[in-house]
């Protein structure tokens, strides 16, 4: 049963470490299929992640890979991309990784519009540490540190990424693997900072605490809370509550940071700067 997947994974690392039904594996599949569609040279791909269950993704793919520190994947990736702009740099983060401890790096990577693809696996919880609430846990839901329900307001990563200056912003789900694959492919193909949030399931932490017993229950829930961008736009504010729009939200062209820096190099070499 050789599929494209086998051309990109480190087989000795399988079966993967994730719990049965964990969405991380579905996202891994989508990323690999998207890369395969683009027929990129494996030697020129770098995958960088932070810390969390989702971040373990980098251990499973046969590229140059790096499992860095919690929240810091984007600045590591920024250094790599600056040093060698020919490399295709993919960054995979968890919701906590990206939006809590790494929130500042996220908005600044977007502001710089550096040519990285950020894939955020949003299971709405801190999976690895046992189900504490994250900045993307919906208000009212439960976590091991929100035993009475979460009173925090959650971020909308899509709006955050757009406001901060990203070039490409999309949201998919693990229930819709085909759509997710194509969104990831578009993001990879886009010059500049691109963001794809994938709503995912953590049946073990999130599911158990929020009355969803099985992975299938969680996927059904994800199906129920998501609507296409088009439908979403017709919703009243009340109808939008508790729902997530999925699809492509932004795709624009502007020079990325590494291109702009090439201009700096030219200037410095021609004119000598302001000193």
């Amino acid at each position: 049963m050789k599929t494209v997947i086998n051309n990109y994974i480190r087989e000795e690392m399988f079966p993967n470490m994730w719990c049965p039904g964990c969405g991380n594996g579905i996202v891994l599949g989508a990323i690999i299929r998207a890369i395969d569609d683009l027929s990129w040279d494996k030697d020129k791909i770098v995958a960088v992640s932070g810390i969390g269950c989702s971040s373990r993704i980098t251990g499973y793919v046969d590229f140059c890979t790096m499992n860095t520190t919690h929240g810091r994947a984007l600045p590591f990736a920024t250094g790599i991309k600056m040093a060698n702009p020919d490399l295709k740099v993919i960054v995979v983060m968890g919701d906590g990784d990206c939006s809590a401890i790494g929130g500042n790096h996220f908005i600044h990577a977007a502001r710089r519009n550096i040519d990285l693809t950020a894939i955020i696996i949003n299971n709405m919880i801190y999976g690895m540490t046992g189900g504490q609430y994250s900045p993307l846990t919906p208000t009212g839901k439960y976590g091991s540190t929100a035993p009475y329900g979460n009173i925090d307001q959650s971020f909308d990563l899509v709006e955050l990424a757009i406001a901060a200056g990203a070039s490409y912003v999309a949201r998919g789900t693990v229930y819709n693997p085909r759509q997710s694959t194509s969104l990831i492919k578009n993001a990879l193909d886009k010059k500049g900072f691109s963001v794809v949030e994938i709503i995912s399931d953590c049946p073990v932490s999130y599911g158990k605490m929020n009355k969803m017993k099985s992975p299938a229950d969680m996927l059904k829930w994800i199906k129920d809370i998501t609507v296409s961008k088009k439908v979403w736009e017709g919703f009243s504010p009340d109808e939008k509550k508790g729902k997530y729009a999925i699809g492509e939200f932004l795709s624009k062209d502007r020079p990325d940071y590494t291109e702009l820096y090439e201009e700096i190099i030219k200037k410095a070499q021609e004119r000598g700067g302001n000193k």
């Binding site: 810091r72 600045p75 250094g79 600056m82």
Partner: peptide, 16 residues
Amino acid sequence: EDEIASMAAVIGASIA
């Protein structure tokens, strides 16, 4: 954006 990021970027660039 801060020294955490600076250290990370320096490591990334060195690896590259």
